[in-house]
Design a protein around this nucleic acid. Structure first.
Lengths: 215, 215
DNA sequence: GGTGAACATGAAAAGTTCTCATATACTAGG
DNA sequence: CCTAGTATATGAGAACTTTTCATGTTCACC
């Protein structure tokens, strides 16, 4: 996938200790995130070490703490970046395609998600915050909620249904797709095709049952 | 839920450094697991500390390492215990009920799962190994696989279908139910009723579509 | 070309995990 | 019921991580 781009997501979603102002430091922060992603990919989350991140990113440990309050925040920022890219790519795709059958919208979105799994280092480990938001930083507002809201806004333009019903169903569908695609990538590093197909089947079946055949 | 009982699950599933032989130490190991569960419930997984576990369990840190190779193994053992209890309770329930419509079997299983969420400390955080098997101890064999195999065996007795098809579908259904119930408990500590209902709806809808109306 | 804010750095303080030498409790055989 | 042999208990401290902070640089702007 090449059209994965960033989108603006509520800024305070990234609780940096200090926002990088100069371009030089912004670049460094990116490097730290890249390093974290690579290391998580290689060693797994809990072998991740601040010293390692710093070394891999080619900076001093102190620099890391210049911007991030703690290790967890680094991973959190990484998930935020992933989320931004995903929402951005979805927006982009939907804009390109114009009004479609929602059937195809589901396919598009899942395909983008698949592409991210395959092309973004560490994505299948970090996802949109499974690790930190749900398990480490428990009561934090769910990253997925941001995603669901975005999708709901997009879909609401094309589907004539009460927004709250849409949001609920999309939330369910999102969770289901999420779980099944993670399963697919757990079974096989490149994503088990049979499970991926089943994921699309389940999601479409659910949405069809809930909303009938609308465009 | 009161009929949650233990079932024997492949023993090596719990990689203890040393199996407690004397009753005294077996009890202590249980205490350590209880302490871990309570602490995870209260503080979250990453605030968990070996020292804390020991203190809460009323033992010395060294005792912990007498049986567990490392901190991760403690949590892993906790998930194994949860899994055993769940499989045991499911077995028990199915034995009691005798042949039912599979519709009711789904309800029963989800209800047991709900009960565990509500009655077992830390269960909604630890689950059957989300934390360690999937994210920390990556390539470990999935705990859910054990569960799915058990369920498949149980269901195969009552449903006339190729076992592999059953296993696949049950695996999908399990993952979906899992994800949605976790969502329900993320939204509300007691489990969001609307989402729970939707979970049952989705799972039944999927299985019905895949297997048609059989008993 | 000088000045204050932003940034970079790494030694060391603070905190965790895990080990190990030592002490104590069981258990089985006699 | 005594004793050797094994299992278990313990906690100080070794090893490793996270995080801080005082100090030195770089940048942006006037």
């Amino acid at each position: 996938m090449s059209d994965i781009q960033a989108a603006k997501v509520p800024a305070e979603a990234t609780p940096l200790r200090r926002q990088p102002v100069q371009q030089r430091s912004a670049k460094r922060v990116e490097q730290m995130l890249d390093a974290s992603a690579a290391l998580i990919d290689e060693l797994g989350y809990d072998a991740l070490t601040t010293t390692l991140i710093a070394k891999r990113a080619g900076v001093a440990v102190g620099s890391l703490y210049q911007f991030f309050p703690d290790k967890r925040a680094v991973v959190q920022a990484l998930t935020a970046r992933n989320l931004e890219r995903f929402v951005g790519a979805v927006n982009e795709r939907l804009k390109q395609l114009g009004p479609e059958h929602w059937w195809d919208v589901v396919d598009s979105i899942l395909d983008i998600y698949l592409d991210m799994h395959r092309s973004i280092p560490g994505f299948s480990k970090v996802h949109f915050g499974d690790i930190i938001d749900r398990q480490l930083l428990d009561e934090t507002r769910d990253n997925n909620a941001v995603l669901v809201d975005s999708l709901t806004d997009l879909v609401a333009l094309q589907v004539d249904r009460p927004v709250e019903d849409l949001r609920f169903a999309i939330g369910i569908a999102n969770e289901v797709a999420d779980a099944l695609l993670k399963l697919a990538f757990r079974k096989e590093p490149s994503g088990d095709e049979k499970i991926v197909a089943e994921a699309k089947y389940v999601v479409k079946g659910y949405l069809a049952a809930r909303f009938g055949e609308q465009s």
